[in-house]
Design a binder for these strands. Sequence first.
DNA 1: GAGTTTGAAACT
DNA 2: CAGTTTCAAACTC
Length: 701
Amino acid sequence: MMGERCESSRGEREVMGTPERSKNSQIANSIAKFEDSPVFSFLNNLSPIKPVKPVHISQTINPLSFASLPSVFSSPHLASLRESRFLRRHSLSDPSKPEFSSNDGNKVDPNMGVTMNLDEHKESNPDANCEKASESPYVCSKLVVEFAETLSCEMDIVGSGLSGLEAKQVAEYACTSSAFVEDQRSEANAEVLGNTGGNCWDSLIADSSDLFIFESPKAKACNESVDPATAFYRSIRNAIQNVQSFGAAACGERGNAAENMPSQPEEGIGMIENMPLQNFSGVSRGMKRRSLVFEMAGGHRKNMEDGSARDSPLLLTNSDGNASSDKQIARTKTGSDCSGLLPGIGLHLNALAATHESSTSGRLLIGSSSSAHFPPPTTSQDLLSSYLLESGVDTFESLLLEDHSRESGYIANEDINPSSPKKRRRKSEQGGDGESCKRCNCKKSKCLKLYCECFAAGVYCVEPCACIDCFNKPVHEETVLATRKQIESRNPLAFAPKVIRTSDSVSEIIGDDFANTPASARHKRGCNCKKSGCLKKYCECYQGGVGCSINCRCEGCKNAFGRKDGSCASALHGDVEDENDTTEKAALDSRSLYKACIHDDLDQSAPSKKRPPRAYVPPTSSSSSSYSGFGAFPPPPKWRPHLEGGDEMPHFLAGGGGSPIKASSPNRKRVTPPQTLTGLRSSRKLVLQSIPLFPSLASNQ
DNA sequence: GAGTTTGAAACT
DNA sequence: CAGTTTCAAACTC
């Protein structure tokens, strides 16, 4: 019967491996099926295996709910990485392997939502000690693989330190080491264990190692291993620990790290054990946030890993039998989240942010701002993240102003359910984090056009949306994807942020001559305003908080952040000759906004009578630590209006130069290559260099 | 809350 | 490619 279970689960996983057919619901169903099955009940009664609350597969835009997917923008490189990883992991858990032919009845499907007590398992398995010898290095090697792959992905995206190739080589090295250990492990199993039990345990680890809270004696034995993979892993871990210690020390005012470390030594060790992976995964998680939404298709494979292994409630307790909390589950999720990177332009931009961040700060990207779904900083790595944030390095997200401004309302604030769209809007405009409360109000577009802010932002509509006949929901995934694809075919940058802006705070931190960066350099394209004078939020430039540039075709531009003609934003200096009250108000707003922004770092309350454009809401003091990464409301960027006009534009947005993306701008808005990029510093160059990672839509079709 | 204005997006 | 229509947000009253 147990063998059948293994077979069954394998078959199911193979099905799940088919992207088109692997869905969250299937995962949920499979988990539920297992838990509801008599077999599960039987196991539950006979063994220390305990059910764990299944992970809820919600329909919200929870990044953990949606696997990343190879959307049309998915990077081939990453895809290959993911693929190789997938295959490797799959083979490791291949039931056809000798250990899977075990007659032992204690086989447990990796996909099952169970908690397994390691000690109990060992007791039931007289060869556990032998298994310890063979398995530990394997586990470590798995970690090495996970980490190295994560590193590869991260480095690939970040573009700093190691090149993608180098990182990949690291990953390959790790894989080689892993294979070596795997071979040894197999031999050991064959020699010592033969066909006896406990081998499904190996498969469990193979499939779920990244999820395990694993600090059993085996893991400790792992630390004693001398295999190169383990050594590699250890060195990396130590390095990161050092950084974390540094971060914790630097965050002394927030409480020392020790205070925030778990009281349970085991837990603490486990945390450290998992730190490297988690830290990277933190970054990736944040990055994933935005694009997860439409990534269903590509997420299937990931679902197989994430859903069946990582996101499954499968847990291993440590030797003390301490059940790991859900929190730990989240922490233990590995950095393989990189698979979720770069699914779409938004993601790429997230990656850009990260690139910019790492390249400018010269620091390894460790940790990220915590997600709203994640616990507040209570661990050393969280402290480190906080440190980074407080150091002004909180701006992976800050680059994504437009994304922020749009997305911030869609993901994080699901607790607001105003009675009417306008109330909702008003409420969002009045609330402290009001900007994050926006929801769409579409009536005719079915939320399948760029008119819909949710759709345009790459997120599903959520309940608080007041849209009518909305199709922008997970249940209409195929429609959404098809529509999105269609739109992207028309304009590959349709879902790109309308305004790209680097982080002022970062610039300040790194000493960038911020004033030398024209606001227009961040334009995706210019506005086309006729009547608003670019002084109202009708104007995308104004709304985005950047000045107009020659890319704009606006008439009578009075953009407070920089006029098209390149003149300084006179509105900011009070010399605007307003033609009417409206424009005057706008100018006042702009002044207020400017004041608010320039004092942002000191006083994060906007003194303006009206709320500034939502993209510029000064962050609350707590936002940096509580806001959730890219998709979920990045702390409003610390910014200043850019007073210089100009016509610089990122390469990739310009659609020229080395970018594979040709922006066929609707309305034929000029999307021209920058005439000069002299103002771009090295960090920005790195950002641009990473753009070619975005495969054009055409290349994927 | 209803109605108007606006400009992006979509369409022809 | 230019003109027109549609659309939903922004805005006003």
